[in-house]
């Protein structure tokens, strides 16, 4: 009788989370359209959608963009800056830890629309844009970052947004590294870089790997942050797979194709997700 208490939760998750995932797999085998004839009476088309996708430069390009985006923003940028922040905020002599910590957290805390909006002003092509004023100080000519280096721009925006999560995860991991160990290495004459490389890093390898999986998974799901700024453009320069799916399903009305693309994305992530759940060794 008491397990029934779980009923409402199971029902909500089953209907609004599981069912769409399953229904999506079915839709991927059809030529369903958002409007028109194929909306009312879709045909079963087998693997056509998948064949189209896997031979489509646009879709493969979107996978490539997502891979680039994940690799440079999440795996490289957020990890390095998050680690730097976590290591710096651990120094005993550092004053104003609370303020620095709060500043780094702010980009993560605000809604993604606000995050995009702030960056729209920074990356504005006008001379008065924050970025252009900054390079003006160093004598550089004004640029239009979102047009001239769109991928780099959105990578930087996403690094900015994700430093905090990396920092938090690494701070928690670093708490388990005994100070004596680091001091002992320093006394033996090891420099800061060597201490990090040979003492600290091996001790927090597990949490770091876990973070890399987690950030990869969440970064693949990034949509609003980029869509708000570029809508996938210019051309298809920042068309991530998430944006590809949205545009094809809702703007070009190709529900079947969009669903098949979703399934491909899901399949790729499920592998990472299962590894994550296995490795995170959560207690149930």
């Amino acid at each position: 009788m008491l397990p029934l208490l779980l009923g409402p939760s199971v029902l909500l998750i089953a209907v609004f989370v599981i069912a769409p995932a399953v229904y999506g797999i079915y839709l991927g085998f059809t030529n369903t359209q958002l409007t028109g004839f194929a909306a009312r009476d879709p045909d079963f088309v087998g693997l056509d959608n998948y064949q189209n996708l896997l031979t489509s430069d646009e879709f493969l390009g979107s996978l490539g963009h997502t891979a680039q985006f994940v690799f440079f923003s999440a795996i490289i940028g957020q990890t390095i800056l998050g680690m730097a922040a976590a290591l710096l905020l651990r120094k005993k002599w550092l004053r104003g830890k609370g303020l620095f910590g709060a500043a780094i957290l702010l980009p993560m805390v605000v809604p993604e629309v606000v995050a995009s909006l702030t960056w729209a002003s920074v990356l504005s092509p006008r001379d008065e844009g924050t970025f252009n004023r900054l390079i003006g100080l160093f004598g550089g000519a004004s640029a239009a970052p979102l047009q001239e280096a769109p991928m780099l721009s959105i990578i930087i925006v996403n690094i900015w947004r994700g430093i905090a999560l990396a920092m938090i995860m690494f701070q928690a991991a670093l708490e388990d590294v005994p100070d004596e160990l680091i001091e002992a290495a320093r006394v033996d004459g090891a420099g800061a870089m060597r201490v990090f490389r040979y003492v600290t890093l091996p001790l927090i390898r597990g949490p770091v790997f876990l973070y890399l999986l987690l950030t990869t998974i969440t970064t693949v799901g990034v949509f609003g942050l980029v869509y708000f700024l570029t809508q996938g453009g210019p051309g298809s320069a920042t068309q991530l797979t998430s944006i590809y799916i949205y545009q094809h399903a809702f703007q070009y009305s190709q529900i079947g194709l969009g669903s098949a693309a979703s399934v491909i994305l899901l399949a790729l992530l499920l592998v990472l997700g299962l590894t994550y759940v296995r490795l995170s060794k959560v207690e149930v």
């Binding site: 769409p20 999506g24 839709l27 998974i217 969440t218 998430s242 809702f250 979703s262 990472l272």
Partner: peptide
């Protein structure tokens, strides 16, 4: 781990 864009269409 399911990214929202992957289920939004269905």
């Amino acid at each position: 781990v399911i990214p929202p864009p992957a289920t939004i269409v269905a």
